[in-house]
């Protein structure tokens, strides 16, 4: 465990130190900002505004972008600089290094997700919502749990892309925003092949998010069960980390 915990600590501070969380933090607070603007313009209940519009927007935009910001450079940066050689020439299996790097960066992502749900909660409560505090807390914590679970899956995909490809930014846009958010939001059978579908299903089951009233976020035609959604998301995380380990075995350190 020494190797994993040491690398995780290193990875966490590498992602969280200085101003490195500022960018992801700004992205995470965008729904809150959008909510504030709408509340000034429109007489709408903040709870309904958040649940119907901001939660889908959070899952569509904020989640993939925050994952890309924080998780993508975890290994790709070390490969680009050649510094990963320092880690790989240690007497420890590479998978331990990969798991440690992943866990450290994932931990750095959690405060960003927390800010993402606490911002709207505070705004909603302060702006005189009809919903009770317990309703707000239930919704916010539910969304945080979904983001945390989704962070494992999306984060592991980002780490895999970072190790496997030499153009990680392009590939992560294609996979997370293309195959993820967009395909999961389009009507039709393709929805079920997207992780986004399972996130929306969890949001429906845990938080009562029935889909957006806009055309951008199409309501789901079917809803996956909670066990199925959790299984798909967690299995994806494990599978992607296994693929990452295989990719790391093959990729040269140059």
């Amino acid at each position: 465990m020494n190797a994993i915990t040491a690398v995780a600590r290193f990875s966490f501070w590498r992602r969280a130190s200085g101003m490195k969380l500022l960018g992801p933090g700004v992205i995470a607070l965008l729904p809150c900002l959008m909510m504030a603007i709408v509340l000034i313009e429109e007489p709408i209940d903040p709870f309904e505004l958040y649940r119907s519009y901001m939660v889908p927007a959070t899952l569509y935009f904020v989640l993939p972008l925050v994952c890309m910001f924080i998780m993508l450079p975890v290994l790709s940066e070390l490969y680009e600089k050649g510094s990963v050689g320092y880690l790989y020439t240690r007497p420890a299996p590479r998978w331990k290094m990969l798991v440690g790097m992943f866990l450290g960066a994932y931990t750095a992502m959690l405060p960003v997700f927390l800010a993402c749900v606490l911002g709207p909660l505070l705004l909603g409560v302060l702006s005189g919502s009809d919903a009770s505090m317990s309703e707000w807390l239930s919704l916010s914590m539910g969304i945080f749990a979904i983001l945390a679970i989704a962070g494992l899956a999306y984060g592991s995909i980002c780490v895999f892309i970072g190790v496997r490809t030499k153009r990680p930014i392009i590939w992560s846009f294609v996979v997370l925003l293309g195959l993820g958010s967009t395909m999961g939001s389009l009507p039709g059978a393709g929805q079920e092949f997207s992780l986004h579908y399972y996130l929306i299903s969890l949001a429906y089951k845990w938080c009562g998010v029935t889909g957006s009233k806009t055309d951008l976020f199409s309501p789901l035609e079917t809803i996956a069960s909670v066990p199925e959604s959790l299984f798909i998301l967690l299995a994806t995380s494990v599978a992607m980390m296994a693929f990452t380990a295989l990719a790391a075995r093959q990729r040269d350190v140059l």
Partner: peptide
Amino acid sequence: KLMARIGGD
């Protein structure tokens, strides 16, 4: 220390 701990220390 990081390098040593990765080595199992």
